[in-house]
Every structure is written in structure tokens, then in C-alpha cells.
Amino acid sequence: MFEAKMLQSSVLKKIIESLKDLFADANFDCSSSGITLQDMDSSHVALCYLKLRSDEEGFEDYRCDRNITLGVNLGLMSKILKCAGNDDVVTLRAEDEPNILTFIFDSKNSERVSKYDIKLMEIDSELLGIPDTDYSCVVKMPSHEFQRICSNLSQLGDSVTIDCHKEGVDFKVAGEQGSGAIKLKQTTSVDKEEDQVTVQLNEPVTQSFALKFLCAFTKATSLSDTVNLSLTQDTPVVVEYPIAQHGYLRFYLAPKIEE
């Protein structure tokens, strides 16, 4: 039996809203340590990796007697989650050999309990080995700032060149109609932690990425005040949104190489 009770349905709603447009069907792999999900977009250029730990406070209850895989159409799951109030407690439940996934939404005052079952899918998405990497550069910045940069620069071109150096990080775009550049300096004297821009630099990195994918990743902005960008020359960039009391949602994007 698998049963996971999340304190806030809004967290699960935000996660699925972040994923459903770029990743259609995905497997939730559930074990005693928690829930993970890994999937690639249809063009195999982007990959997402979700990790929700069972020992974090975000789960009021968590039980997983045997490892199970829940193959879900994320669009359908998004529709079901729209039936939950943001403050509802959501419980996911499935049997050990599941062919349905049950959602239970408890309103705060427990006057309304809703129950939905969805049919599970057989999704043969083989998991990719994501190597642990010591990144040349890790940028921590406000998530809304990153969303705005991607949105603004995508008006002028389809690739952004991210240039990490010791003073900070630059984002540049050059298209037919024009070009744009945004230079972020490391912040030194801001009071609020979540407004800081920090750059941990081991090596300078200059790499280009498709803006349409980065803009799609920023749908996860509501999950966290900050976002972490990890870069190494000629490897995929990692865009990580920490999920308080749960874990994180990571997006990997393969670089574009200039011929």
C-alpha cells in the first residue's frame, strides 16, 4: 500500500503545472525514501527530475510498503488537482500492484472530502543516469528575476548566451531584429536573503541555451523564491527550484554549440 498525505495541495499543484506542458506522461517512482520523477521532453533536449523526500515535514503521513511506479498523464493530473482547494490536504493512495491512483482532498475544516481515481498508464521511460558533477559555476538568484530575464530576452532571439565570471553573470541574446544583454553583479549589501545574487565560480563558463526551454522551466517560479543555475562548459545547465519541506525540482537543458 502506498499513501502520502501532503499538508498543502498547492505544492503538488505548482509542481504539476510546472511540468505538464513540456513533459506529457511521467512515472512517479515511490519508495520508502520518497517520490522521484524523471522525464525528458519529446525532443530529448530537456529533462526534469523531481525529488520529494518522505522524511521532510511536507508529508504529514507517508507510507510505502513496496516500491511502486505510478504512470500518470500529467495533463489529467493537473485537471484533478484543480478540483482541490489550495488549502486542502491532499492524500495520494495506491495499492501495491496499482492500476489506479486515488486522490483525496480534505478541506481544512474537514466538511468536504473529495475522492478521485485516475487510471494509471504503462510508461516505459527508461531512466537516464545523471552523474554527480562539480559544476564550474553555481548562480543563486531570485527566481522571479530569472523568469523576467528569460522572458525579456526571448523577445529578441531564441538562444541566450550565459556568461559566468568572477564579477557576476551575464545573459546575452542576439537575433535578426536586435540584441540584448543583462549583467547581474554579485549582490553584497542586500538585506533579504532571497533577493541576493551569488556566484560561486570555480571556472568561467560561457554557454548558449534555447530560451524556449528556459522560459518553460520558469513556470516553476512559484515553487521557490530563489533558483540555482549550475553550469559547466559543454554540459547541460541545471535549473533547480528548491521545494521547502519537500526536496527540489530540477530541470536539465542540453547546450547549443556554435558551429
Binding site: H44, V45, G129, S208, Y252, P255, K256, I257
Partner: peptide, 14 residues
């Protein structure tokens, strides 16, 4: 011109 690489180029199927 720039060429978009794919994830499989970097992360192998185990």
C-alpha cells in the same frame, strides 16, 4: 549557426 544537442549525448541510459 548553432546546433542544439540532445540529453542522450550527455546522460547515458544505465
Amino acid at each position: 549557426i548553432s546546433d542544439q544537442l540532445q540529453m542522450l549525448f550527455f546522460f547515458l541510459r544505465p
